[in-house]
Simulated scan of single mutants.
Amino acid sequence: MNKFSHIDLRVNNMENVLPFYEKLLPELGFTRTYHSANWKVFAADGELPSVPYFAITEEADHKPNGNLIGFWAKDRAEVDRIAKLVKEFGGNISGGPQLFPISPTYYAVYFADPCGNKYEMVHRLN
């Protein structure tokens, strides 16, 4: 059983970041939406609450910090594709895509959403 359930993410300006997430999250498998006035929810295929989901809410005084959310990629090509899309969608690349000295096969891109929340897309063997 995959123990992952969900992410509750704060952003400091929903209007600025929502277009980024509306484009990026479906590329990461969060294809269903369950939006309300205060939360924008993107879920994986299937029915809530049994599928992973990514929920975003606005908190005007939110300040991004050193926390990072990581996603698995099926191969290096997917890392490269997501890096290209992040740039197109208004995100910021801070590293990669490239091999990192975490392990001999650790290929990743590090990026941030338009308000500075940090992410990683990684592929690695063993």
Rank of each mutant, 00 (worst) to 15 (best):
K3W: 06
F4Q: 06
F4A: 02
D8P: 00
L9P: 10
V11M: 00
V11T: 14
N12W: 03
N13T: 11
N13F: 03
M14N: 10
M14Q: 14
E15R: 10
N16P: 00
V17F: 00
L18S: 01
P19Q: 06
F20A: 09
K23V: 03
K23Q: 08
P26F: 02
E27W: 01
L28E: 03
G29M: 09
G29T: 01
R32K: 13
T33E: 13
Y34W: 01
S36M: 04
S36V: 01
A37P: 00
W39R: 00
F42C: 10
A43W: 10
D45M: 08
D45Y: 11
G46W: 04
G46V: 05
L48F: 12
P49S: 07
P49V: 07
S50A: 05
P52W: 04
P52Y: 05
A55R: 12
A55E: 12
I56K: 12
E58M: 08
E59K: 09
A60N: 14
A60W: 07
D61K: 13
H62V: 02
K63W: 04
N65G: 15
N67I: 12
I69Q: 03
I69F: 08
F71H: 09
F71V: 06
A73T: 08
A73Q: 10
D75F: 07
D75P: 10
R76E: 13
A77F: 01
E78N: 07
E78R: 15
D80W: 07
R81C: 03
R81V: 03
R81K: 11
R81H: 13
R81F: 10
I82R: 08
I82D: 07
A83G: 14
K84R: 11
V86G: 01
E88T: 13
E88C: 06
F89A: 15
G91D: 02
G91N: 02
G91W: 01
N92G: 07
N92T: 15
P97T: 11
L99F: 12
L99K: 08
F100P: 05
F100M: 14
F100N: 07
P101D: 15
P101V: 03
P104F: 11
T105G: 04
A108S: 15
V109F: 13
Y110G: 02
F111M: 15
A112K: 13
D113M: 08
D113S: 08
C115W: 01
C115M: 03
K118S: 12
Y119A: 06
R124H: 14
L125N: 13
L125A: 08
L125F: 06
